[in-house]
């Protein structure tokens, strides 16, 4: 099953946008205007399509900024800390996110793909 294609189809229906707009590099909130209700529905759709347990906090990076505060308070390196928390993301992606925090929510379509791939590999 093509993960990108499945997520594109689900998002196109949920957000009422064209599939072509949903590229791996698109930001879920900044570019696609996804709202929290859309993400909840998407999480269930991903569970249905791929048969994986979906943790909303993980897949949508809901606790990202709390983790950054936690790392700071504990005197830990933010990148190392996030790498432990988000095992489905590469270090390169985490570093990109850390450099991109000022722009708003950092979640991208590709992060969802990474999560699903990681879950399927570890099923």
């Amino acid at each position: 099953m093509d993960i990108l294609q499945t997520i594109q189809e689900e998002l196109a229906e949920l957000l009422d946008i064209e599939k072509e707009e949903i590229t791996p590099d698109a930001y879920m909130v900044r570019d696609l205007d996804a709202e929290s209700i859309d993400l909840l529905e998407l999480a269930v759709a991903i569970n249905a399509s791929f048969g994986i347990d979906v943790n909303d906090d993980e897949i949508f990076l809901r606790l990202l900024r709390e983790f950054l505060e936690e790392a700071k308070d504990a005197g830990k390196d933010a990148g190392d800390f996030l790498e432990e928390k988000y095992r489905f993301l590469t270090r390169e992606r985490i570093d990109d996110m850390l450099n991109d925090l000022q722009g708003g929510p950092v979640l991208k379509v590709n992060d969802l793909i990474s999560y699903v791939s990681w879950k399927l590999e570890n099923k």
Binding site: L40, E41, A43, V44, A45, I46, N47, A48, D53, V54, N55, D56, D57
Partner: peptide, 10 residues
């Protein structure tokens, strides 16, 4: 119950 995530249930 059809499908669910940690926070949503259909």
């Amino acid at each position: 119950l059809q499908n669910h995530s940690q926070l949503a249930y259909t």
